[in-house]
Design a protein around this nucleic acid. Structure first.
Lengths: 125, 125
DNA sequence: TCTTGACTTAAACCATGGTTTAAGTTGTAT
DNA sequence: ATACAACTTAAACCATGGTTTAAGTCAAGA
């Protein structure tokens, strides 16, 4: 079974090692083994799991919620409904955030149009 | 000319008064007048301007950048190119962020599908 | 006149999400 | 043997974006 060092995990996801240590300390990365020298060993499964955590981060799920999710994963299959509900709620929140950003971008686009015209007019003069 | 009190501005945009004071202190809301009692008076134009600032906030522009934009607005028309460039850059950043969120959401959706199936299978047993 | 509500200020405080530092350990190459 | 790189830890530190507090002012109504 292949294991990844923290530097490999860091490189794979382009995340600082310090952040991975921080995530482990916060409980987002449970059960990371160590080698004889005390260095972290990330299993394939844990690397995959880290990928999920990064998806959650990318969609702005707070660390406290990710922690809850991780705790449920550790707890086992009887928490699947809870996880499903959490992810469905989160999905709606993300869609709402994307909508807000998209709408706000329209307002910014109007400014871009306006500024572009102003500059054009100035050049014409 | 109509003026808005801080409570009216707060209500209009659903933003805490404390946040409006904070924004003014940070320089995002320049030239807000006061009445005899020292209370803020937001002009129509300033309310419109606040709307832009909120668009920028909604799209995660940092306060320091918004400040730069505001300073350029105050500086006058010879900064329009700078503002245009800033907004174009910002737009690209926002589109990139939306893409990242959308992509990450796909990963989360896979989990939703998986969990849904697991629950279905459990019910069938 | 007195109270009340809606403000004002400066400064302290807080949450979130890391990053940096200092001091130490280990395994490998020379 | 020794030096170096790649880790380790706990704790301090930092940036960002507000929120809260304490003490005070003012205008309007009872």
């Amino acid at each position: 079974m292949k294991y990844y060092s923290i530097s490999e995990a860091s490189a794979k996801f382009n995340i600082p090692e310090s952040t991975l240590r921080y995530y482990e300390k916060k409980g987002l990365l449970p059960q990371i083994k160590r080698d004889k020298a005390g260095r972290r060993l990330f299993s394939e499964d844990q690397i995959t799991f880290l990928g999920i955590i990064i998806y959650l981060k990318n969609t702005h799920m707070p660390i406290s919620d990710i922690k809850q999710y991780v705790d449920w994963v550790v707890e086992g299959d009887n928490t699947i409904e809870l996880r499903l509900r959490m992810f469905k709620n989160h999905k709606q929140a993300v869609l709402a955030e994307i909508s807000l950003m998209t709408e706000s971008l329209k307002g910014i686009d109007k400014k871009i149009t306006r500024y572009t015209k102003l500059i054009q007019e100035r050049k014409v003069e």
